[in-house]
Structure formats: C-alpha cells, structure tokens
Simulated scan of single mutants.
Amino acid sequence: MKVAIISYTESRNPGAQLQSHALQTAIKKRYSFVEKCVHIQHRIFDTTIVPQRKGAKGFVTKLFYILTFSPRKRGVERYKKFQEEHILLSNICLEENELEKLNDEFDLFISGSDQIWSCNKGIHKPFFLTFVKDNSKKNSYGASMGMEFIPDEYKDDFISYIGSYNKISVREYTTKLFLEKYLENKEISVVCDPVFLLDIEYWKTLFENNPIIKEPYIFVYSTQMSNLFKKAIRKIQDDTGCLVVTSRPLPFLRCKVVYDMGPLEFLNYEYYASYIVSTSFHSIAFATIFHKELYCIPHSTRSSRPINLLNCLGINRVIKDVKEIDYSPINYEKVEAVKSEMVSNAYMFLDEILNQK
C-alpha cells in the first residue's frame, strides 16, 4: 500500500513539523504492508528571514529582524534540515494537474493533522483533498479547524469538501460537534494528535542527550504575549529563581532569547525545562509527554485547542489569574492512563482506514 499525507510540512513551526514526522513514522512503524508513506509537497518551504512590512512599525520590525539576522538564518536552516532528514516528501506538486497525478500513484490519502481546516485566510483546497478523484481514498486524521467557527462565506464549500470523505477523524471535540450539525450521516471520530503516537523514548532519540541550557529554566513558548502571560512568567520566575528561555523578547525579565530554534532544539528545551509556560498546543502536548510542570495561558482567540487537550488529560493548569498558579506536582500516573486509552483509540481508527484495502 502507498499512502500520501497532506499537512503543514513546510511550516517554520516546531509543532507542525513534529506532528508531520510523527504521523508518517507511526504509520511506517505499525503497518508493515505500507511500502510508501509520504507527505505531499504542495508548498515551497519559506526561507524568508526579514519580513517585508510597511510603515513606521514595519520599519522597526525589519530593523529588529536585521539585527538578529544570523541566529534567525540558523533557525531557518534547522527547520529545512529537519524537513529534509525527518519528513519523507513527494515530488513538488504546486499545480492542480500535478496533484491530480498522485491519484495513479497512491492507494490512500490522509488529511492531517494540525490546523489544516482553518479558514481564517480562506480555504486551501488541497488540504480538503479536492484533487482526489475516488472518495473512498479520502480520509482525515486528527484534522483541526484551528478556530471556533467557519465564516459563512466558506461554510458551504467547507461542509461539501469534508462530506466527500470516506473516514473522518478530528483532533478536537469542538470540531466533531460542529461537523455533526451538518454531516448527520457521517461518523466523526476524535483522535489524539500524532505526537502522542510516539512515546517519550522515541522522541529522546531525535535530540542530543545534553541540555542546551545548563541551569534550571522556565521554557516560554507563546503565540501571544498578553499581560496575563507576562505576569505569570514574572511570578514563576520570582518564585523559583529560574532563568526564562524564550523565542520572543521579554523586557524586564532575566531571560535568554533563542532566535535560532529548530524542531530538535524545541524538543531539547521542552525536555530539560523545569517549568513550561505556553499558549501553544504542541508545546503543551510535549510538556505532557515529557512529564513537565506546565502552565497554559489561554490565547485571546485560539485557546480551545490546548484547553481541550488538558481537559481530556485531567490536568488543571489553565491559568486565568496569577493567583491560580500552583506548584504541586502533576499526577502523571493518571495522565499516562488517559493517554494510553487515547493512543489505543487512535490506532483503532488508523487500523480502519489502512486495513480497508
């Protein structure tokens, strides 16, 4: 059997690349009859380092990026290297006719995982497998909308495209509830993110058994630096005395800013951290895989994904006020029992779609 997956493989985001690697690796490890499993290369890897922005604010941003050019360039090279070494890709398929040729080569197509069904910038049709001619070949694994609702202007196409799938699984329960309102005759499964399909021992084989940061530290990975987020970091640093390691500058804190982080460095920072503070789904996910003390600060508009994950795992670490910060250790024995069931259910779904031929 030959399997083609479509996801965010070209993204300079550690979670996007690591989940792409995870699904591909999990399929190859478990299903010996899968002779080929690739990610469809439908976009060119973005090597832009200095963003082109207009106005006074844009000028300041460009200047800042120029001043940090060397480490940022190193970070881009690390993402590109990870993609080349750890994600098996198809030939480049940028045009519709190039994607259509894949119909003759592959027996099964999978959308996912991650926010491939987000419509905040419109519908990217390849993520919905619109180029696949045989609907029985269309499946999704852990797809996410990445937003709370679908704008009305995209809703009809969104539902129509997903309604053509053979088997559908999503990552968040909220996505399942949304789809079930419109696809009454379709069974919608909820499965865990692909990073959970590989255990801690596997992930440790990817990065060096040596911490990049030698002293105790708080790893901060954020997609939004809200006032609450900054207050939480300041409190945890004041209480623990730990260094803050972050990919974005945090004024007035003792911190080390890492502009050159790639996926493997991200794993190293997560694994050796004393504490993790994040708004990011995959940062929270790996914190639970590595049994870290973690704190999730809700994003103002995209908080449902990590909160849904923590609720599923029974971890009460969503901070809405700094007074809620708790240093009692997380009971990871209970968390592992829940994760074990999640992974078992996920493989049951993969069994269904991969054993159908």
Rank of each mutant, 00 (worst) to 15 (best):
L179S: 11
N185K: 13
E187F: 09
E172G: 03
I200L: 05
E215A: 07
K214N: 13
E215V: 15
K214E: 14
N209S: 15
N210G: 04
L177I: 07
K214A: 12
F196S: 03
V190M: 07
F196E: 12
I213C: 04
L197E: 02
K181G: 09
D193G: 02
F207D: 01
Y217K: 08
P216C: 06
E208G: 01
Y182L: 08
I218T: 06
V191E: 07
I218M: 06
P194V: 03
D193W: 10
W203D: 01
E187P: 04
L179Y: 11
P211A: 00
E201D: 15
S189I: 08
P216F: 05
L198P: 06
V191R: 02
T205S: 11
C192H: 02
T175S: 13
K214V: 04
P194N: 04
K214C: 06
F207Q: 04
E180P: 01
I200C: 10
N210A: 07
L183A: 09
Y202N: 05
K204D: 08
I188T: 12
E180S: 10
V195G: 01
L198Q: 02
F178S: 09
K186A: 13
L198H: 04
C192D: 00
K214G: 08
K181F: 13
I188V: 13
N209Y: 05
F178C: 12
Y202F: 15
E187V: 11
L197G: 00
I213K: 06
L197R: 01
F219E: 01
N210H: 11
N210I: 10
E201L: 09
D199G: 07
K181T: 11
V195W: 02
Y173F: 09
E184P: 05
N209I: 08
K181Y: 12
L179Q: 07
I213Q: 00
E215Q: 15
F219M: 10
D199R: 00
L198F: 06
I200H: 01
S189V: 04
E172A: 03
P211T: 04
Y217G: 07
K176A: 09
K204R: 15
E201K: 15
K214D: 12
E180V: 06
T175F: 13
V190D: 02
N185S: 13
L198N: 03
F219A: 06
